[in-house]
Design a protein around this nucleic acid. Structure first.
Lengths: 331, 331
DNA sequence: TCAGTCGTGGGGAACGCTCCCCTTGCTTGG
DNA sequence: CCAAGCAAGGGGAGCGTTCCCCACGACTGA
């Protein structure tokens, strides 16, 4: 019991395959009554065009790959960024009539498979998410010639257009805010330095402090809560006098908050904390987190738009989205 | 400048298309030296088999759809469940050599598209995630005849195999724990009742209280933090004397915690709080959240396994995974 | 030595669709 | 009234694979 084919519909309707094809694809050059007959046959037989056959002949798939760099199992398991970006991108793609192929690029062998996958013509284009700077994947994929964009700026410039948020501006604002409160010893918890966003946020922090002749106090995290908690412990040990912390993302800020609580420091009285991203959880910490809002959903949607433009016009301009500080109670 | 085809490789290697095909697909009946020659031609030309052509002739795609019921934009934007499940499922699928097609089933028209999509033969099977009971999609899709499984039990039984966690057992344990602490007035924040998991957790709560002749105090949420916060407010108003709350998931528990804090109630001294799921954030609340661990990652992996079995054997047995209570400081 | 096998490789149909090109029949203008 | 043009449907090639079937040579056993 196989699915009906175009041929079957044509036979049922008493017209040629060509006519059925024309009706299916909504071409105007077909008489209303024929359209009527064909539509009837289509619904009667429950006909749905075969995707593979279509893809084969048209040389396009109407499918876009979302390629997410996947950390080893267990690391960032419930990352809100993943949920927001993938969800927002999928919505935008779906709204544009595109199907979504989700690809996790984890181990080296899976990276090879990604390349093969794109080369096999399974997708019309791709969108890269959260690639780290040491990852050779973007360069490799760029070489396939497929339209590809990046969600977030890549370490290697010029490889492909991207949409990013203003990490430097955001981090600068965050530190300025801390300074304006009269904080003297401002530490930071950085993200993984092979990620561009982490780099930029750290650099902006350093620059801002340098401008006021303060010294940097840096601990390294990897954008996870636990790493934030550990980094905070380190920071407290390095400089027990510190009175402010700028965490490079909210997850790490949340981790830092826990360490601070365990250490008996009051926030913001003893130590002020500022995060970055403004994920929903930032509204629910104790105290609610002051943070820099990065428009994740919009960034994802814009990245999709960029790709769609690239697909249509063959060229597209990178975008940097503004950030803004959201002041709550932690600083 | 088109990609090389099988034909081109055959010409380059001086053999027939058939031989190249055999080499590509690793068939044993090919002489080592011919294999050698073909492989050389393949790498030389950078040949990658065309996916659409393959799909067309083999009538399979090696692709699995993950169909996620998508709430209206802005609702559950950074749901950790989404991230965990999609990620774990993708990993498992990728490990099995399957490609992943992510489908968000939101509006009614997009639901129609989902059906068409499956019918078009784009995927070999599908996995449903977080469908609510009122959703007609599972029934519609089951009728396509494609192998489909569900992550989480459906309201309509018998439609397809599923993997779920032991909601009833988990919720019962949670309430027992509260009772064993001598809590007298135990309220609950329920999830949306058109979701099976919410139903089961609520029923188990009710049953447990009934067994000890206590009355239920119920507020309705929708599994989001904000709804948890609001429900808690409602609860406090309904029964200012309450001394315990069982939230049907951690997100709502987190929301409840905030309301409690704002209301000046101490946790767990004045009010004990138990959540459900044990998401990572539960470790970082103030105080850390006592909760029922549901093995989300494993559940997703098992759901994939179920689908793979269904694909291979044509039949598969539903599974219910055990839960366990994780006692921290909130109760 | 010769029929029968077996191990390999080649040829070509088929998968289900799109799209180009041609035919057909009608309209229109000189 | 006829040539020209045009709208609309039909025929069929071709997209790039897989896989069935057949040919061919070598090897075996009687």
């Amino acid at each position: 019991m196989r699915r009906p084919t175009l041929h079957a519909v044509a036979a049922r309707a008493g017209v040629s395959k060509s006519s059925v094809s024309r009706v299916i694809n909504g071409e105007p050059t077909v008489a209303p009554e024929i359209r009527q007959i064909v539509m009837a046959a289509v619904t009667e037989l429950g006909y749905v065009p075969n995707g593979a056959a279509r893809n084969l002949v048209t040389q396009k798939t109407n499918t876009i790959a979302i390629i997410v760099s996947d950390p080893p199992a267990g690391l960032v398991s419930d990352d809100p960024m993943f949920a927001m970006v993938v969800r927002a991108a999928s919505r935008a793609l779906e709204a544009a009539g595109k199907q979504v192929s989700l690809v996790l690029a984890g181990s080296d062998e899976s990276r090879l498979r990604v390349e093969q996958y794109l080369a096999a013509g399974h997708v019309d284009g791709a969108m890269l998410v959260s690639m780290d700077g040491s990852d050779p994947l973007p360069a490799v994929l760029a070489r396939t010639g497929l339209p590809i964009v990046s969600h977030g700026r890549l370490a290697t410039p010029g490889l492909m257009p991207y949409v990013d948020n203003d990490n430097i501006g955001g981090a600068t604002t965050a530190v300025q805010h801390l300074l304006s409160q009269g904080r003297q010893r401002i530490a930071t918890i950085s993200g993984p330095l092979d990620m561009q966003a982490a780099q930029e946020r750290l650099n902006a922090y350093r620059q801002s402090l340098q401008d006021t002749d303060r010294r940097s106090i840096v601990a390294l995290g990897d954008f996870t809560r636990i790493s934030g908690a550990e980094a905070m412990r380190q920071l407290l040990q390095d400089d027990p006098q510190l009175d402010a912390v700028f965490a490079a993302n909210d997850l790490m800020a949340i981790g830092a908050l826990r360490t601070l609580r365990e250490a008996g420091r009051r926030v913001p009285d003893d130590v002020a904390v500022v995060g970055f991203d403004d994920i929903e959880a930032a509204l629910y910490t104790a105290p609610p987190l002051t943070t820099v809002r990065s428009p994740m959903g919009e960034q994802a949607a814009r990245t999709v738009r960029l790709l769609l433009d690239l697909l249509a016009d063959g060229c597209a301009e990178s975008v940097i989205l503004p950030t803004e500080i959201v002041i709550r109670e932690s600083a």
